Simulated scan of single mutants.
Amino acid sequence: MVHIVLVRHGESSANADGILAGRMPGVSLTRAGIEQIRGLADIFPFRTVAELRCSTLQRCRETAEVLLAGIRAERVRESPEFAEVDYGTWSGRRLAELKELPEWQAVAGRPSTVQFPEGEALSAAAARAVAGVEAFVAELRTAAPAETVPVGVVVAHGDIIKAVLAAALGMPLDDFQRIAVAPGSLSVVKYPGTAHPTVTAMSVTATVRPGEAGTLGGGR
């Protein structure tokens, strides 16, 4: 048995401005985002975890730093497989503007078919995220002492977390927009040794803030 806690970064400057950040540099947490993660640390379901892995992007590194002021991780490392989707030329544009594009209908209804211009396919991003979690689970299971239940934390982005949750729920990628994860939230998936995964918590925040459905990145 392994528990994986999926943490979406706190509100970022791009979230606050309604911009699709993607992999743009210099996107940091807002003051509200820092407070979201401090609150999340207070309600975190595990006080000590075996390992924390986070996206290589600044807003996730900052989230991990704030979270680790309230919980303890025996190991910490950055993991590029949990980096944000590369939205290509959509990066830096306003979500309100992107929603007016004809291509948005595919993002909302057929995400498995979406290839972002000069960027990444959503299916490829989902596949690397799911494979990254599966490898993390296998490593935790192998390294754990007998009779212990290891816990891993992944600090990542909305679409990355939604893809992992969809896979755990047995949902096709084309249904992953039915899931929303709020900034500064945690979701928990239990991975038993032989049975299917079980999602035991989804988009839990310290302030009961919901995610936004049907948009990229899990909304604001």
Rank of each mutant, 00 (worst) to 15 (best):
G219K: 13
A168V: 07
E35Q: 11
W104L: 04
T56I: 13
V85I: 15
R59V: 04
V188S: 06
I71A: 07
A21K: 14
V107E: 03
L101S: 10
Q58P: 00
V199A: 00
V66P: 01
T113G: 00
A129Y: 09
K99Y: 11
S185R: 06
A168S: 07
A167R: 14
A83G: 12
A14D: 01
A106C: 06
A135I: 11
A69M: 10
L67V: 05
G33L: 13
E74W: 11
L122M: 10
V114P: 04
A69Q: 14
V49D: 02
L165I: 15
T142H: 15
W104Q: 02
K190Q: 14
E134F: 14
R59D: 00
S12E: 03
G152E: 03
Q36M: 06
L165F: 13
K99I: 10
G218A: 06
V188K: 15
P145D: 00
I37W: 08
G33C: 09
A144W: 09
I161K: 07
R38G: 00
G33A: 09
L140C: 03
T194K: 11
V5M: 08
G22C: 03
H3G: 00
L52Q: 05
A201R: 15
T215V: 15
P150I: 08
T56W: 12
T142N: 13
I160A: 01
V154S: 01
R47N: 12
G10S: 09
V188G: 02
F46C: 05
I161L: 12
V149T: 15
G70M: 09
P183Q: 05
G10K: 14
E74A: 05
P210Y: 05
A14V: 05
S28P: 01
T30H: 10
V155N: 02
E120L: 06
N15T: 05
A83Q: 15
H157K: 12
G39L: 02
A166L: 11
T198R: 15
A143P: 02
A32G: 05
G132T: 02
P210V: 01
G132K: 08
Y87G: 01
G193H: 07
G22R: 06
H196S: 12
A213D: 13
L40T: 09
A180T: 08
A131E: 13
F136Y: 09
